[in-house]
Write a protein that binds this DNA or RNA. Structure first.
Lengths: 234, 234
DNA sequence: GACGTTTTAGACAATGGCGTCTAATTTTAC
DNA sequence: GTAAAATTAGACGCCATTGTCTAAAACGTC
């Protein structure tokens, strides 16, 4: 105790597992409390209690409440970005069953990126504290929704080039795809409730059906087509 | 000063304008501060300062912070409900130009109900404090989005009955109409920014075009139709 | 102008949270 | 086992906020 050096200052590879576990525990607890109470309403003491850690330990890792908050947001954003990248990469290159693939993709997107814990956290915190931390918000916007729309836009451009879709504005189509995918889940998304798998499936089917009615290649027999009811039976 | 009676207790019609003005001033200021800072972050002193009123006056009208908060939410909800009703009633009975009417309607809806001050307030507060006040949230959900979807659903049912639209699930169509209308404005809505009239118009046009491609009656010449670009020129 | 009511500014105690400090205890590395 | 580092519980000062209280001032009505 002769020199009093900042605990995590050197990170000399010495104590890793213990510290790391504490850090993660703190980050998780802080995310939980910040999400429920907001920045102003969250108390360090409550975070410490949830993390099963003493208050001083939090201050050892993060200089002050705001430092902890920024660290939490960045942590969640990193996880969310990784997940989004993974989901975006999951769309198959050759989609023989376009409707099925789009539906499954919408389910994955909603389930793992929008309706999950991290999605709820980011939406809520970005909305409440976004004006106070414009840098954080901008970073989220670019790497989250921005990347999503860009990727979808490119995907639709590819499909339009192949003649599978008929689209005049890929960016608009991408935003509309996401919007349609959320249409049936809006309330749950706003409330932060977690939809069931059935709800996710149904919402995605509704979204993709409408999307394809608008942007699908007009097949020759469309005029004489039945009013879509037969297709749902399966 | 002999009996100390609650100021607004009797409302004997005596002093109305002065008190009423104070009340409205307090409600407006509180809405502003609550919206920016959240419930926990808002301080009575700041609200008093914004309202140009002493702190004690606030406590004369509202017993405590929470009472004020609930009153503010109810006040904004009342205004928002009236506005929504007005917009919902504005759709003409006989729409000869369906695309134009739907577009204008979407503009009105977004401009006056979703992207305006009250809309931003309610979305933000319902999201942040909804779990703490489930009753308020539920009331908002029913009278706001619930009423909107019900009314749109009925409207689409009427149009489908007339043969103007081809829809199998009116509720889904209603949700999708709203979702499409917000698709291009999501970021601004989340951030609480106010879109320009041009942005509103463009978003509504994109939404209605896609909506009608999906649900519009398949006209005979559709197969040979130009890719919609000609229609935008005007 | 007089009277009752409302508003105001400021003081006040109570509460609670933040961030610091300390001394004791536990963990970790060697 | 030993020494360094990390963690803990608790106390502490500080500050902001809530909600109350009081005496003075402003207001509206007659």
């Amino acid at each position: 105790m002769k020199d009093r050096m900042t605990p995590a200052a050197r990170m000399g590879g010495h104590t890793q597992r213990g510290q790391c576990a504490k850090r993660m525990s703190i980050l998780d607890a802080a995310a939980d409390v910040f999400c429920r109470q907001g920045f102003a309403g969250a108390s360090i003491d409550e975070i410490a209690a949830v993390a099963c850690v003493s208050r001083q330990t939090i201050y050892n890792h993060y200089r002050e409440k705001e430092t902890l908050f920024v660290a939490v947001v960045e942590d969640v954003m990193n996880r969310a970005n990784a997940m989004l990248f993974s989901v975006l990469s999951s769309f198959p290159d050759n989609a023989d069953d376009l409707e099925g693939e789009l539906t499954a993709f919408a389910v994955r997107l909603n389930k793992n990126c929008i309706c999950n814990h991290d999605g709820k956290f980011l939406r809520k915190l970005v909305q409440t504290e976004g004006e106070r931390y414009p840098h954080l918000f901008e970073s989220w916007r670019q790497q989250g929704p921005g990347k999503l729309i860009t990727a979808l836009s490119a995907l639709f451009a590819r499909l339009a080039h192949k003649g599978t879709l008929v689209i005049d504005d890929f960016d608009v189509a991408a935003r509309q795809f996401v919007a349609l995918g959320n249409a049936d889940l809006q309330m749950m998304i706003l409330l932060g409730a977690t939809p069931t798998d059935e709800e996710l499936e149904k919402a995605a089917r509704n979204a993709v059906r409408t999307f394809l009615k608008a942007y699908g290649r007009p097949v020759a027999e469309k005029a004489g087509q039945q009013p879509q009811l037969a297709a749902i039976s399966g």
